[in-house]
Amino acid sequence: MSAVTEHTDHGTEAHDHADHGSHPTTLTFVKVAIILAVITALETSTYWWVEDAHTVAMITLFICMAIKFVMILLWFMHLKWDSKLFSLMFYIGVGLAIAVYIVALMTFHFFA
């Protein structure tokens, strides 16, 4: 073939090929799914007690959301095993979105 050969000389970039060999088993994914389901149940339960303990419910909800978000990314979307460059691409988007929209909402005194 042409002079196009493997050249992985870019030290800063990751070359994880971890999922070539041993990618996680079905059991791992089932476990993750069960955990996600349990968290969703916990989240839903706040519906019935949110009036009694508003602050606790809010904190619970945000923590649960964050855990679910990260778990899906890391396990289901393989970021745990994949290249850091993929994570970077995605996290730039998430980070920018959170930053600019929170600032925009702040100018509307949304959090006041």
Partner: peptide, 10 residues
């Protein structure tokens, strides 16, 4: 990111 010639570091 992906199509650089060999040796073409960032």
């Amino acid at each position: 990111l992906n199509m650089r010639a060999p040796g073409m570091k960032l």
